[in-house]
Each structure stands twice: as C-alpha cells, then as structure tokens.
Amino acid sequence: MIEFDRVVKYYGTHRALDGVTFTVPDGCVTVLIGPSGCGKSTSLKLVNRLLEPDDGYVRVDGRPVKSFAVEELRRGIGYVIQSAGLLPHMTVQDNIGLVPRLLGRDKTWRRTRALDLLELIGLDPHSYARKYPSQLSGGEAQRVGVARALAANPPVLLMDEPFGAVDPLNRETLQNEFISLQRKLKKTVIFVTHDLDEAVRVADRIVLMQDGLVIQEAAPEELLGHPSNAFAREFVGTDRALKRLGRFSVSDYMSQDTSRVESEDHTSVPASATLREALSRILAVPSDQIPVRDAQNRILGSISLEAIRRAGYGGAST
C-alpha cells in the first residue's frame, strides 16, 4: 500500500501539490488523472524520490520513502515513462536486464529473464533481444519499457503516461495488453494519464486532481456516476453515462434467452465486449436487441437496450 499524507511540493514559489492525501491499495491499478499542471506526475515522482516533498509524507507499506536508500528504493519500484526512455546505446536485452544488473544478477539470469519477459509482452524473444531501441516502433519500445520495469519483479509499478506517445490504435492494443498482464501479475500500480478513456479502461481506482489538490478518489463507475463537484462533472464530460457503460461487460448483463434473435442476424456483439459497444451496435439496427456471440462465433444469448438502460441507470443520475 502506498499512502500520500498531506503532501506539499513547491516549484519555486508555485505550490504544485497543496496537501495531497490519498492511498493506493495493493494489487490494483490506481490512476492519477487531471489537466496538465494538476500535480499528477509530480505525485508519481515523489514515490521513487525523483522529487522530494516539502511537507507531508509518502509511505510505502507504512514506511516513509525518505527512510530508504534512494537507489535501493528505485530498484525495488518499476518505472515506465512516456516514449519508453530506453537507453539507446544498449540492446533490448540489456535494457530489460538493467535493474537486475544493478542488483548484481549474473548474465545468464538476466538473459533468461529478458527472453521470458519479451515472450510475456508478446515480442519474439530471439528476433528482438539483440535489437537496439532505434530499431523498434513506438509501440514495441513501450512494451520493452514495461518489460524493463518488470525485470526485477518489483511489487510496485509507476507508469507516467506510458502510452501517451503511441498512436491511438496501438494505444488501445497496449492498454488491453496491460490490463491482461495486470490480471496475471497483480502489481500495485500508479498510472498517470490525462486521457479519461484510458483511465476508465485500466483503472481500479481513479484519483482526480486539480491545481495540486485531490478532487475525488473513487472507483471509475463511482466517479462517472457521481462526480463530486462542478470541476469533476466538467472533467468527466456530458457523455459520462456512456463512458460508464464501458466499465460493464456484456456477459454480465446478457440474457440466455435466444428465442427472439435470428441466428443469421448480421449485427452481433462478443460476450467479452463492454455495454458501451453493445449499445453502439444496437443503435445501428432497427431491433432493440442483438445476439451475443462467443469467441467461436456461437450464439450465447442476447443483450437488450432495456438491460443496458438498467445497468446505466444504476449511477448515471445526477
């Protein structure tokens, strides 16, 4: 667990963090979000002490970060940044093995670990291990950046706009890969972004910040359903009810009843999709329900406009 306790940070005379308090529970993804200059990246860098607070405490597992030797602290926390930050004079394999090397792991261990991690992030180990960062696409470099952060198997990951420099199509792929990776690894993640859609997709909890203050700390459904003030309402947007549907899975709201759907219906929705996608597809057909199919394209049931409306109504009323 990571705790921010009335943290204050000045840049010159500018109060970048104005008494920030929130907690990051173990094993889930906490997203820090807000407009630029709200203090989200500053908060992140206080955890691995790239910045030091002027007042207040940052604690990891109850222990103030100040009490750690700074290099030891950083080697125990995975750090992923925008445009990956890979060292251009080292191969992919050496970049991934960087923290283990600093920790004194031998060459064979590092090589095996690098190949395993390349496999895990979906890059062919043998063709990528010896490449240089300049030979990677943006998305590949970002995946390697994640692999590097995972190399020493740290319990905590800090991700500073990790997918911000990747084009939208690749960004969504990377987000989905990250979500499934996180499901396996259960790291304690602090994830900074200014992209609400990204936050809603990856977050277990969202901390909304503005001008160095925490405005709201809540689960994504809660933030979208009940934004706590005018700023939060404006930030989540007028389509927040739609965004909120993105948090619900079709498989949880579909009906097993297949009697009213025709198997030759052209429009259907996969069971793994979100209610937001299902709604979008229903709106494109004259009927008020469409079939739900599994990965093998078999019909499992149907999802109706009524079911989606009921799911959305749960919290979208303010």
Binding site: N48, E72, R74, S83, G85, L87, L158
Partner: peptide, 13 residues
C-alpha cells in the same frame, strides 16, 4: 534529460 531521469528512476547511482 528524460533519459537521464529514466536512468535515475531505474536506480542508477
């Protein structure tokens, strides 16, 4: 500078 911060962030002295 981002690269240097990345290197520091990985725990380099």
């Amino acid at each position: 500078a981002g690269l240097i911060e990345a290197a520091q962030g990985q725990g380099m002295t």
